[in-house]
Design a protein around this nucleic acid. Structure first.
Lengths: 338, 338
DNA sequence: TTGTAAGCGTTATCAT
DNA sequence: ATGATAACGCTTACAA
């Protein structure tokens, strides 16, 4: 049987309220006689008492939990984002529940449902996938705050990456290196993230006076395997591209393997640029040129907004986090590796 | 204000108990007149009622939560394990809380504490790190079951990988290929996992009549950066190794980059074998030969044991999950890539 | 087949 | 400075 506050009270010879006040003395200031406090503390220690967060949460209407919904746990980018969230959350006594939808609508829905049932104090929606649907009405009456990362939202505050600008930047870089046939490895989905990067790609092409060619855009399904297939398909074109921009690093890794397997070289035969700057990016050879978004910062900003909202403060509704192109070897312009 | 069971009861013109019975009809069989059920269901629908898991948990002494403690979220291996746990857990209505200790003792302790406070129904301890300490006494009285993955434990059931055997297998493979100077990229810590792999390495050496050389064992700190430094150090030895076995894939990736940067080639100049079979392993060029442990299976088995324990069934205390050496290109024996 | 009432463990409010 | 009491939202005997 679990030790309750009553057990402690009995052993210490005080009332449950006193025990409660001792336990929460860090949060709520309350005058307690030193002797009493000592006896309570001692009783807690000998009994090994730990308060029940469920009971506390029921009363306080707070679970102390923050839910994070990411599209794909196997993409190292998302753990980084969640690390940012976690650091800020833990600093304020919140714990996080990390959930991966695997870009599956049913899974997403059931997770949101569970999060709401658990009365999480906040939800962070990460990524631009359309498998997640959450309306203002759904969360209304739940005393739960919501913030989005990397997805547009009219109803909830958002922390955004300038994907269009970053896509443009990456493509312009390739164009500036003299490439005229630049391909884009996309991912078919309603993911706004990828679509935006593609828009930037297209804008750069058009601004550079290069015609957009549908043949040069292929699906890579977010994964290494998809990127590999995309790379093969692209390089088998009658007029293959001289540069490839992949919408994420995982696909870029796959594309790089495909290029090498065809006996071609990066960047000599094909230049390659990725997106995310995952940990392995700088340890590939050639090291991958990629768009780095400070993913940790992204998470931290989102969590700060959440905290502000929970405190009832009027939080900033829209925050942008910068991106930068990390020029390594795969684009042919840099020599930097690590 | 949130909708409670009383609101539904009032609207449907029944008592709260009846509403409760309708809501939980899937779990607990109870006779209810169809007409009544319909009215309740309708009221639930119009009001948008969702039960409060905190209240339910307080009463039932169940949170419906499973805590997972991993050493390092940025190693893609752990998300895979947790996926295995999750799949089984979700199938039985449990949700998981994913926590990364970052191999930090304070973080680990505070997470375990939080998990216990939240009255999680089960805890899965993943990885052999010594930053995690959890005794039978600590969980006693918490109605919380514990299971370990990849770590020895006398007190809790464990799902183990035969790290010694796998380490031996990988090393024997290299030895069989004619290598006599085989290095080991380790990770300094009390992690039993790495130590066991190293033991296997050593056993294979001795069984093969090759002397163990302390110089050939270097620290790689679990990461690509550490593996890179280790690779450089190893290849700068007056008598460099002709083969390197890294205790995990992240370090193997780093070592591969180091070797290439020194103008040497894998596997011609140095053969390389990793451990984990992370997603990128097969997309490196040369593709990484590595020990594959069915990490998903590992998680699934652990969760099944947890469920058995929670059901009060006598679960199997020790389960072993197989490993196999995936021979790709980096060891020089295979041609297989993807 | 349905309703009443007690209680899960905690904290806020009001007394003392 | 401390204690008694009510309440948070739910489930489950027990009663009807």
């Amino acid at each position: 049987m679990a030790i309750t506050i009553h057990d402690v009270a009995r052993v210490a010879g005080v009332s449950p309220s006193t025990v409660s006040r001792v336990v929460n003395s860090s949060t709520v200031a309350y005058p307690i006689r030193p002797g009493t406090r000592d006896r309570v503390l001692e009783a807690i220690d000998t009994l090994g008492y730990r308060p029940n967060d469920l009971a506390r949460g029921l009363l306080l209407k707070k679970s102390g939990l923050i839910g994070i919904l990411v599209p794909d746990i196997s993409n190292p980018y998302y753990p980084e984002v969640s690390r940012g969230i976690e650091d800020v959350a833990n600093g304020r006594g919140y714990k996080v529940m990390f959930c991966s939808t695997d870009r599956d609508r049913d899974k997403a829905t059931s997770y949101i449902d569970a999060l709401l049932l658990k009365r999480v104090d906040g939800i962070v929606l990460v990524g631009g996938g359309d498998e997640v649907e959450l309306s203002k009405e759904t969360v209304a009456g739940y005393d739960t705050q919501v913030v989005c990362i990397g997805r547009p939202s009219a109803t909830f505050p958002t922390v955004r990456v300038d994907n269009v600008g970053a896509g443009r930047m990456a493509t312009e870089h390739l164009l500036g290196l003299g490439h005229r046939r630049v391909a884009f490895v996309s991912a078919l989905s309603e993911s706004t993230t990828v679509n935006e990067r593609q828009r930037g790609y297209r804008e750069a092409l058009e601004a550079g006076g290069t015609a957009f060619e549908p043949d040069l855009v292929v699906d890579g399904g977010f994964t290494e395997a998809g990127g590999y297939a995309a790379g093969k398909a692209l390089m088998s074109l009658s007029e293959p591209p001289t540069a490839i921009f992949a919408a994420n690093d995982r696909m870029a890794v796959g594309a790089m393997a495909a290029i090498k397997d065809l006996g071609l070289r990066v960047p000599t035969d094909v230049a390659l640029v990725g997106f995310d700057d995952v940990p392995v990016a700088s340890y590939l050879r050639p090291a991958l040129t990629t768009v780095s978004v400070s993913s940790r910062e992204l998470g931290a900003q989102a969590m700060k907004i959440l905290l502000d909202q929970m405190d009832g403060q009027s939080a900033r509704r829209r925050v942008r986090v910068d991106t930068r192109l990390v020029i390594r070897q795969s684009c042919g312009a840099g020599t930097e590796s690590t």
